[in-house]
Amino acid sequence: MEFDEKSVVPVLEAKYDSFTQSEKNIADFFLKNKNQADYSIETLSQKLFVSKASISRFVKKCGFRGYREFIYQYEKSLNSVRKDVADSTKTVLDTYQELITKTYSLMNEAQITRVINLLGITHRVIVCGAGSSGLAATEMESRFMRIGIDIDSLTDADRIRMQAVFCNEESLIIGISVSGENESVLYLLKEAHQRGAKTVLITSRDSLFFREFCDEVILISSRKMLNSGNVISPQFPILIMIDIIYNEYIYLNRREKLAMHSDTLRALKSKEHYMLNGTGKL
């Protein structure tokens, strides 16, 4: 799979809540009028009753140098979408493919490097989430503890909130909330930030509000804009990002990390052997 350039649509979806009402109107045009024949800035200005300068500011807020680059990438992403869906299985597979493509478009490699550095310098990591996000948090704990990181996962709302009391400058708190609205997760991130801990939020919602108490906001693709979003596990985009972070972290010192992972697997196998031989009985 090759990715040459980033797609416009996932950027609009992720930043949507941070847009002004005028900017949301512009975003809605591109999200809902994908069969439009004329995307010229003049046509858009007349249709939406906004100035060309407002449109130019909008595309720059989305990370593009100008409207020409923005519309080029937008039309290119539309041309790459396969519209003929033969059956439900293909629909699901195509939706997974779309989520992967959107993840690439949202991924910030410099940010991933910064998060990896935080994992390397903090003494204790707490990852938390509820529901499907909680399951992803548990998976993250399972994977990273095998390569030597002191990490715990929290999925109970009360335990998440209580953890704030124990945060300090040596803590790294990773909150997972696809909607960006889980009160317990946001509470822990806010309190931890005030106590000097490093904080990271993994979410599909881009909001300036999160920057007030999060050192890093990692954007993931969202299912809510997908035609078949209700049949795709909400964990999937979270797990993709966890895999990316995990792979990059291992890459820093591959031999040592893989040796540690092998040691943990060997410890588990020795337990199985111990129980199979009956010596583990009380």
Results as ranks from 00 to 15, higher is better:
residue 130 A to Q: 07
residue 266 R to S: 12
residue 187 Y to D: 13
residue 219 L to H: 01
residue 215 D to S: 09
residue 7 S to M: 10
residue 26 I to V: 13
residue 219 L to D: 01
residue 206 D to L: 00
residue 191 E to D: 12
residue 241 M to A: 05
residue 159 R to V: 00
residue 109 E to R: 06
residue 93 L to Y: 12
residue 224 K to D: 13
residue 241 M to D: 03
residue 282 L to W: 08
residue 198 K to L: 01
residue 231 V to T: 14
residue 208 L to Y: 09
residue 86 A to P: 00
residue 161 R to G: 00
residue 23 E to C: 02
residue 140 M to V: 08
residue 167 C to A: 15
residue 131 G to L: 06
residue 116 I to P: 05
residue 116 I to G: 01
residue 47 K to A: 06
residue 242 I to W: 08
residue 12 L to V: 13
residue 60 K to S: 11
residue 55 I to H: 06
residue 162 M to G: 05
residue 123 H to M: 04
residue 281 K to A: 06
residue 177 S to F: 06
residue 164 A to W: 01
residue 29 F to P: 09
residue 86 A to F: 04
residue 158 D to C: 00
residue 156 D to W: 02
residue 216 E to K: 02
residue 88 S to Y: 09
residue 272 E to V: 15
residue 180 G to P: 08
residue 30 F to T: 05
residue 170 E to D: 15
residue 259 A to N: 12
residue 83 K to T: 11
residue 130 A to L: 09
residue 203 T to M: 06
residue 172 L to T: 11
residue 226 L to W: 04
residue 245 I to Q: 01
residue 74 Y to N: 03
residue 227 N to V: 11
residue 162 M to P: 00
residue 135 L to V: 10
residue 228 S to Y: 15
residue 268 L to R: 12
residue 186 L to Q: 11
residue 84 D to G: 00
residue 211 R to T: 13
residue 103 T to N: 14
residue 98 E to M: 09
residue 154 L to F: 14
residue 155 T to G: 05
residue 210 F to R: 00
residue 216 E to F: 01
residue 179 S to V: 04
residue 9 V to N: 01
residue 73 Q to S: 11
residue 275 M to Y: 15
residue 51 S to T: 14
residue 3 F to K: 12
residue 183 E to L: 08
residue 183 E to P: 09
residue 266 R to Q: 14
residue 218 I to V: 10
residue 18 S to E: 10
residue 249 Y to D: 02
residue 207 S to D: 10
residue 194 Q to M: 13
residue 268 L to N: 07
residue 75 E to I: 09
residue 211 R to M: 07
residue 22 S to I: 10
residue 131 G to E: 09
residue 271 K to H: 14
residue 137 A to K: 04
residue 5 E to N: 14
residue 222 S to R: 08
residue 139 E to H: 09
residue 181 E to M: 06
residue 102 K to P: 00
residue 217 V to A: 06
residue 198 K to A: 10
residue 268 L to K: 13
residue 96 Y to G: 01
residue 279 T to P: 00
residue 247 N to G: 04
residue 236 F to E: 01
residue 255 R to S: 07
residue 76 K to Q: 12
residue 110 A to R: 10
residue 167 C to Y: 03
residue 114 R to P: 03
residue 210 F to M: 01
residue 269 K to V: 02
residue 138 T to N: 12
residue 217 V to I: 12
residue 176 I to R: 02
residue 37 A to C: 03
residue 107 M to A: 11
residue 272 E to D: 15
residue 60 K to G: 06
residue 49 F to T: 04
residue 150 D to N: 15
residue 117 N to S: 15
residue 237 P to T: 07
residue 40 S to A: 07
residue 258 L to Y: 07
residue 34 K to S: 11
residue 42 E to N: 14
residue 56 S to H: 08
residue 187 Y to A: 05
residue 79 N to A: 14
residue 191 E to V: 13
residue 103 T to M: 13
residue 84 D to R: 11
residue 188 L to Q: 03
residue 132 S to Y: 13
residue 168 N to G: 14
residue 171 S to Q: 06
residue 19 F to R: 05
